[in-house]
């Protein structure tokens, strides 16, 4: 079956904005993603080496703030929802397929490396920036937080500034 067309971007944005508004109205906080990654990392570290977690400042501070365990966290539940929601969306639009997407002049090996490296940079940066595109930039914009908007400007400004150097990863010409 043919893949369905994507939703009109303005409509999608409007719905996403309403969802964010409802989130703030109900819970007093915005959406997020990287926070769940952090919870997962702390949980994994705690399983592999509890003694290390106890002695490390970062982990022990986190454990102290999350007495019920790192996974009992609002964002963890939210991201589990994201996985389900995206899966359902892919299912009804016929986009559910195991697929290795290659762009530009990348090879499979290069793409694995860039995905890992890009992910790692994003993960690291989201910790410094106290949130990623969802938690800091989008949710920060909704509540007009100065910090969130600075992070947003830095993410997109940075991406534009670096884009030229990595163009071969994404486009064939140039």
């Amino acid at each position: 079956m043919e893949e369905k067309k994507y939703m009109n971007p303005y409509l999608a944005g409007f719905l996403l904005g309403l969802l964010l508004l409802v989130t703030i109205f109900i819970t007093g906080r915005g959406l997020g993603a990287s926070g769940a990654v952090k919870s997962a990392v702390v949980e994994i570290a705690n399983i592999i080496s509890p003694s290390h977690v106890g002695s490390s400042k970062f982990y022990s501070e986190y454990m102290q703030e999350h007495q019920d365990g790192p996974l009992k966290n609002w964002l963890v539940f939210e991201v589990v929802g994201v996985i389900i929601g995206a899966f359902v969306s892919g299912l009804i639009s016929n986009r559910l397929k195991l697929k290795f997407e290659l762009r530009g002049q990348s090879t499979r090996g290069i793409r694995i490396f860039t995905a890992l490296l890009g992910g790692a940079l994003f993960g690291l940066g989201s910790q410094l920036g106290r949130g990623c595109t969802s938690g800091a930039a989008l949710s920060g914009m909704a509540v007009l937080s100065t910090g969130g908007l600075i992070t947003m400007a830095a993410i997109f400004g940075g991406a534009y500034a670096f884009a030229f150097f990595f163009r071969k990863l994404w486009i064939t010409k140039g």
Binding site: G118, F122, L124, A154
Partner: peptide, 12 residues
Amino acid sequence: GGLIMGLGFVIG
């Protein structure tokens, strides 16, 4: 943090 994320965005 934002700049690092931006770099991660165009690489990843």
